[in-house]
């Protein structure tokens, strides 16, 4: 069990999300940076889909009531147990009774704290992920608060620390043209691909709201409501695009100018309000290459973890 002494600004339980409930209006939910969650889980020998804590900002103090191995990935936090410092991207040991202190993030936006055995909150609609908008899943359907006691799964027999170098952040987000791209003016299409888009303050787990030049339709058009998904870039009448994320609604009626590819969705999770990003037009073949790169990354990571012998080992693969 973990006791929350200081909860951070928006800390939730997340796994890889819910599958198969969109047709009743339930978003996929789950970690915004899926690859960082998987990495954190692999470092502590959890299944990829084990639930961990998604940290958004602020300081966390978590008191562990059993011995545990933990790993922190994604956004860069300072990690301390008492006066001892620990490395980001590594698995490390904490003893029962000790308090883990996380301060950050120094860079990036969302971090994932995995604990061996995983966070063992009840499964709701096929997932342990918190869906704030419907107040379901996770720990009582909400962000963590002071005094919460978070149950852990069975501990795993791990011995030494290991670590992985994480992929490099870039603000270039690859995207495929959306079904309604052609409805926009030629100038708006050019602007969409060529300009920098600033992530605005009212972004959240439902969507990253972007600000920049106004995108215009060639003529007013009303669309029937249709399914949307994480990565869908929709353009409401304001002309300022919104990239839907894991907790975004399941259907919408705004024109979809483009779709962020799955391999790059994590960049939206790690871009802070005020930072800028740029969309890169890719072909379906390039999407396959991007997915293949991730497969390679995790394949090599797993090989390195499996082959790891007695000494500390730094796994030096990055994208």
């Amino acid at each position: 069990m973990i006791e929350v002494l200081t909860p951070g600004l928006h800390t939730t339980v997340q796994d890889l999300g819910r599958t198969g409930y969109r047709h009743i209006g339930v978003p996929v939910s789950g970690a915004l940076d899926r690859q960082a969650l998987i990495l954190a889980n692999r470092l502590v020998a959890n299944p990829d889909n084990a639930a961990s804590l998604e940290l958004t900002a602020g300081t966390l103090e978590l008191k562990f009531h059993r011995d545990a191995w933990f790993s922190l990935t994604g956004a860069h936090y300072e990690i301390n147990i008492g006066s001892r410092e620990f490395w980001h991207g590594w698995r490390s040991k904490i003893n029962a009774g000790e308090t883990l202190c996380l301060r950050g993030p120094k860079s990036g936006m969302r971090a994932y704290l995995a604990v061996d055995g995983g966070i063992d909150v009840p499964i709701c609609l096929g997932s342990r992920s918190t869906l704030m908008t419907a107040e379901l899943g996770g720990h009582q359907g909400r962000v963590l608060k002071v005094g919460d006691r978070i149950p852990l799964g069975d501990k795993r027999s791990l011995s030494k620390p290991i670590g992985a170098v994480q992929r490099n952040y870039s603000n270039e987000v690859r995207a495929l043209p959306g079904p309604e791209m052609a409805l926009f003016t030629q100038e708006s299409r050019r602007v969409f691909w060529s300009s920098q888009w600033q992530v605005s303050n009212d972004s959240n787990r439902m969507g990253a709201r972007l600000s920049g030049e106004t995108l215009k339709l060639a003529q007013e058009q009303s669309l029937n409501s249709h399914a949307v998904m994480p990565g869908t870039i929709q353009v409401p009448p304001s002309g300022q695009p919104i990239v839907l994320l894991a907790d975004g609604q399941t259907t919408g009626g705004y024109p979809k100018i483009a779709t962020v590819i799955e391999a790059d969705l994590w960049k939206l999770a790690q871009t802070r309000p005020g930072q800028k990003l740029q969309f890169i037009h890719v072909s379906p073949n390039q999407v396959e290459d991007a997915n293949h790169e991730w497969q390679q990354y995790f394949y090599r990571l797993q090989r390195a973890i499996d082959a790891n012998s007695s000494c500390l080992q730094l796994i030096t693969y990055s994208l």
Partner: peptide, 11 residues
Amino acid sequence: LFLGFQPGFPY
């Protein structure tokens, strides 16, 4: 017609 927008919301 369909459910969407929010969990269980009927159009």
